[in-house]
Simulated assay, not measured.
Amino acid sequence: MPGLYLHIPYCKQACHYCNFHFSTTLHNRDSMIDAIVEEMKLRRADLPDQPLRSIYLGGGTPSLLSGAELERIFRQIHELFQVDDEAEVTLEANPDDLNQDKIKQLWASPINRLSIGIQSFSETDLRFMNRAHNAIEARACIEYAQDAGFENLSIDLIYGAPTTSDEQWARNIEIALDYDIPHLSCYALTVEPRTALAHFIQKGKVKDVDEEQTARQFEYLIAALRSEGYEHYEISNFAKPGWRAKHNSSYWLGKPYLGIGPAAHSFDGERTRRWNVANNARYMSGMELWSNDPEQIPPDLIEFEVLTDDQRYNEYVMTSLRTSWGLDLDYLQNIGEQYPDHFLQNAQAYLDAGHLSRKGNTFRLTEDGKLLADRIAMEVFV
């Protein structure tokens, strides 16, 4: 079954490490919601006529939306799409938005899963990252959500920051486990081009990321969560049994999804990818033009590509090797008969080194291999 993604491109302030598309100018939200609703109407046919398995509001910071704005979006979704009775409906949220009143409002909505950007329970880390919330809010929002009845919770944590000592990283994990969070997304701090963090490092204002520290904290993370029964089902994602993220799993499994909003991406499940312009003003004006003339998509509003077999192979290698289910040679054979041999020839060194394991036609990263996931994928690309 397909998924629906809506990109809400607003944030209160810019995190130093973030390179996602967003704006801190919030005054045009009504026009943006108009455009998002209109795009859903115009692109309904882009998805198979099947019930939605997942709905995901990402960003940006979707928790900035008011109850009325969320109600309008969901009303339009339910008018246009069938929604499976067991659909996962996720809202990305920042802790500073999740006071008790907001949580009650969300609990009364179709949202049944919160993905909360905690990042750290340390005040020092949060200031370094320029997060809008503080350490007290990081804990309080989890307690409010659980008290309201939300069971399906995921939190984001970041390791490898210069301010995150091994002791603090262990403490972050301990706190998450104390709250019995069923799903954790844990990411290494990455220095992305054209971010404040990249600028600060270039100017010598902050230390660069320490690769040994990052690897050490990643290994600790894996061991700590395994001991508590979490499944490491994707490089950055850990879940208790039965709590895998349906929406993100669809990406890794190559399922179709429709992306709505500026900078949102879509995939038809076969070969075609589409993505919207990453500019709020151009997106809104383009959607207005398209709404007035539904037969003519304005230039530069939506771009697309048809994947070649080589691109399909590379994407499958990249995503499958990051997962617990691994890479299947039979799937490569379906892409093209030359690809299994190419993979085997280039993967042999990593099999010999113990970074890859093989069971039948399935290949998975070993614990040591997980530290080299991107490098291994690049080595077996075409």
Results as ranks from 00 to 15, higher is better:
Thr163Glu: 14
Asp49Cys: 04
Ser250Asp: 13
Asn276Leu: 02
Ser249Pro: 09
Asn292Val: 00
Arg75Ala: 08
His199Tyr: 13
Phe218Lys: 06
Leu225Ser: 09
His342Ala: 11
Ala198Pro: 06
Glu305Gln: 14
Thr319Gly: 06
Arg44Phe: 06
Glu86Lys: 15
Ala264Glu: 04
Gln333Val: 05
Met1Lys: 11
Ser66Thr: 15
Glu212Tyr: 09
Ala239Lys: 06
Leu307Ser: 09
Arg271Gly: 06
Cys15Asn: 08
Ala170Thr: 09
Val209Thr: 14
Glu151His: 14
Ile77Tyr: 12
Tyr313Met: 03
Pro51Met: 03
Gln50Trp: 00
Met287Arg: 06
Pro294Ser: 09
Leu344Gln: 15
Thr164Trp: 00
Leu26Cys: 03
His27Ala: 11
Phe121Asn: 08
Asn292Met: 02
Cys141Gly: 07
Arg194Val: 01
Arg127Ala: 12
His21Lys: 04
Gly117Phe: 02
Ile55Asn: 01
Arg44Ser: 09
Cys141Phe: 09
Glu288Ser: 11
Glu231Ser: 10
Ile33His: 01
Leu177Gly: 05
Tyr220Arg: 10
Pro294Phe: 06
Ala373Tyr: 01
Pro48Ile: 10
Asn361Thr: 06
Gly59Pro: 13
Tyr179Met: 11
Met40Lys: 01
Tyr251Gln: 00
Phe121Thr: 09
Arg271Trp: 04
Thr90Trp: 00
Arg29Pro: 01
Leu301Tyr: 01
Tyr251Asn: 00
Asn134Lys: 05
Arg53Leu: 00
Val380Met: 05
Thr272Pro: 04
Leu70His: 01
Gln76Pro: 00
Asn334Trp: 03
Gly254Thr: 06
Thr366Val: 05
Leu26Met: 03
Arg113Ile: 13
Glu367Lys: 14
Arg375Glu: 08
Gly336Asp: 14
Gln76Tyr: 00
Ser122Ile: 11
His265Val: 10
His183Ser: 02
Met1Thr: 14
Gly354Ala: 05
Glu174Pro: 00
Leu321Ser: 12
Leu157Lys: 03
Pro182Lys: 01
Ala263Ile: 08
Glu303Val: 07
Glu270Tyr: 03
Pro298Cys: 11
Tyr331Cys: 05
Pro294Thr: 02
Ala239Ile: 02
Cys18Met: 07
Asp268Ile: 04
Phe200Cys: 14
Thr195Met: 02
Arg364Ile: 11
Gln217Val: 04
His78Cys: 13
Ser120His: 07
Leu372Asn: 05
Leu344Gly: 12
Tyr56Pro: 07
Thr25Gln: 15
Ala170Tyr: 02
Met287Ile: 15
Ile175Val: 15
Leu321Glu: 13
Pro262His: 06
Asn19Glu: 08
Leu65His: 09
Gly354Pro: 08
